[in-house]
């Protein structure tokens, strides 16, 4: 199996693509989670659909890069609208997220059905973004994903101090003269890149977990941001690769859902058994304390 990982063309692409997604979304997800924007990724993933459709309608091309640019632009527009609604109305962030998510996606579905019924008929490549089809990844896709992901990670590394400050105390950052708003937009843009990478692999619905899961799992093991980001990347990559391996070795197992299920196992394991914060140790400690108190 492990040798096939390096020799089998399909398996290598699927595993590489999923690992890339895990690393990028794991690292970036840490900042989203710490800024309490865990579900932003969910909204942006849904909002990307109309962007993909419009890009196809305008260019007639299904090249990954064209569709991904469409997705990124739509994600951007959605972010902008989201921030405007939160700033200008009394609606909560949570309502604004749900509004943007569902109306953008609804419009995307209108476009998708319009495209498929208007006879151009080769929309077949578009609906794989709904559920993701890691199994259809080819070397070209993986290269595009690798380039995008590397760019996102480089920016993250270059600005990690600024992002750290933004994540823990945005007002302090602003008072020090950092362009807090610009940094926030940049960070969101990087998250859009992670989503764009994820759409082809795990699809719209499961993307939320790829951002939130690794970060929450990593948080249980450490109190240091740097370690948390590294760990989240490792957890993301591990669930990506194990998902790919399991789904290829067993018949009738879709890659995306298996990746998310592996990730869920990691999250639950960390939640219960992480050294300092694990719930199991908590429960044991409490029981001991009660026993001590009773014996006193």
């Amino acid at each position: 199996m492990l040798i096939e990982l390096f020799t089998d063309y399909t398996l290598r692409n699927v595993a590489l693509g999923s690992a890339l997604l895990g690393i990028v979304s794991g690292a970036l997800g840490c900042f989203a989670v710490l800024r309490r924007q865990g579900l932003l990724g969910d909204a942006l993933a849904h909002a990307a659909l109309p962007g993909i459709c419009v890009a196809f309608l305008l260019t007639g091309s299904k090249a990954p890069l064209v569709l991904l640019i469409g997705a990124a632009l739509a994600g951007w527009l959605a972010t902008l609208l989201l921030l405007t609604v939160v700033r200008e109305t009394r609606l909560s962030t949570d309502s604004a997220l749900a509004i943007v998510l569902s109306t953008f996606f609804g419009f995307g579905i209108v476009l998708l059905t319009f495209i498929s019924r208007s006879g151009s008929a080769n929309q077949a490549g578009l609906d794989k973004f709904l559920f993701g089809q890691a199994a259809t990844l080819v070397a070209e896709d993986v290269q595009t994903m690798g380039l995008l992901g590397a760019a996102a990670l480089l920016i993250l590394a270059a600005l990690h101090k600024e992002f750290k400050l933004l994540a823990f105390d945005a007002e302090f950052a602003a008072s020090l003269g950092f362009p807090a708003r610009g940094l926030s937009v940049l960070l969101t843009s990087l998250i859009v890149i992670a989503i764009v990478i994820g759409l082809q692999t795990v699809g719209v619905v499961l993307m939320a977990a790829m951002l939130v899961g690794p970060a929450v799992a990593a948080r249980q093991w450490t109190n240091r941001l740097g370690v948390m980001v590294m760990l989240a990347a490792v957890f993301g990559a591990a669930s990506g690769v194990s998902g790919a391996l399991i789904s290829v070795s067993e018949a009738n197992t879709p890659t995306g859902p298996v990746i998310i299920l592996s990730l869920t196992v990691i999250v639950l394991g960390s939640l219960f058994f992480a050294p300092a914060r694990g719930l199991v140790w908590d429960a044991i400690r409490r029981r001991q304390q009660r026993a001590e108190r009773l014996s006193d």
């Binding site: 865990g38 949570d94 977990a209 899961g213 249980q220 998310i260």
Partner: peptide, 16 residues
Amino acid sequence: RMAGESAIGIVFPAMF
């Protein structure tokens, strides 16, 4: 151990 929206972001994708 996690914020409210993170809990949502873990549970529903897992169920789906």
